[in-house]
Each structure stands twice: as C-alpha cells, then as structure tokens.
C-alpha cells in the first residue's frame, strides 16, 4: 500500500503546486522556497513525519521534505549539543541532498554542453 500512497501523496503535492504556477505570477524559485519553509514548519509541528510514515517517498521526495529534514537536524543537534546545535543541525541533515546535487552538477558541467531548445 505504501507504493499507492507514495504515488497519490507525491502526485497531490505536485498538483497543488501546479495551481500556484498557473494561477499566480510567482516564479518557480519563490514557489520552491515557500514549499521548503512550509515543510520546516510542518516538521516543527510534528505533522511531516506522520506524512512520511503514511506516504513514504511520496512525502520524502518533494522539496518540502528538505525543510523537514533541516528542522529535524537542528532539533537533534540541539538535543545533543545545546545552543550550537541551532547552527550545526541544518547543514548536517541537509548534506546529502545539497552535496549530491553540487557534486553531480559540477561533474555535469565538465561533461555536457548547453543545448538549444526546439
């Protein structure tokens, strides 16, 4: 059932975001920021992990999950290290997404050339 839930919830988050793209003049960058901030707030309230339990990758693959991940990293580090955890937790927890995108993105810039659209 986790597969169906992943498909439905992941699809639903995307479909709702499409409303923002089509009905507002918000640029994609702004919409991504909104999703990430929402994700961290939902994480802090404790809803986001419930959603991941229900939908698996349907909740963890959308970018809002990145906000939740950052929040959880901050919370864990505060629990372990106290005040400095507010500064260390986010990057520790977000490292996989950021580093993999940076490293693969950089390597891609060495291999690929920009392409014309038609």
């Amino acid at each position: 059932m986790i597969y169906l839930n992943a498909f439905l919830i992941g699809g639903l988050i995307c479909a709702l975001t499409q409303i923002l793209i089509d009905k507002t003049k918000l640029m994609p960058g702004r919409i991504m920021v909104m999703l990430v901030v929402l994700g961290s707030i939902f994480g802090a309230i404790g809803w986001y992990d419930d959603l991941i339990d229900f939908a698996g990758a349907g909740a963890s693959v959308p970018i809002c999950s990145f906000g939740n991940t950052l929040w959880k990293g901050v919370k864990e580090d505060i629990d372990t290290y106290g005040f400095t955890g507010i500064f260390t937790g986010g990057f520790t927890a977000g490292a996989i997404g950021i580093s993999s995108a940076l490293i693969f993105g950089y390597l891609a810039s060495l291999i690929f050339k920009p392409k014309m659209k038609d």
Partner: peptide, 18 residues
C-alpha cells in the same frame, strides 16, 4: 539569439520550466 536571451532574461536552457 534564443540561447543568449534565455540565459540573460530567463533561465539556463536545461532548466525545466513551463
């Protein structure tokens, strides 16, 4: 030029947008 104009005024050409 489409490429130069997209790069200057919109997004990189390989960026996915509608």
């Amino acid at each position: 030029h489409f490429g130069g104009a997209e790069k200057t005024f919109r997004f990189p050409l390989d960026y996915g947008s509608q």
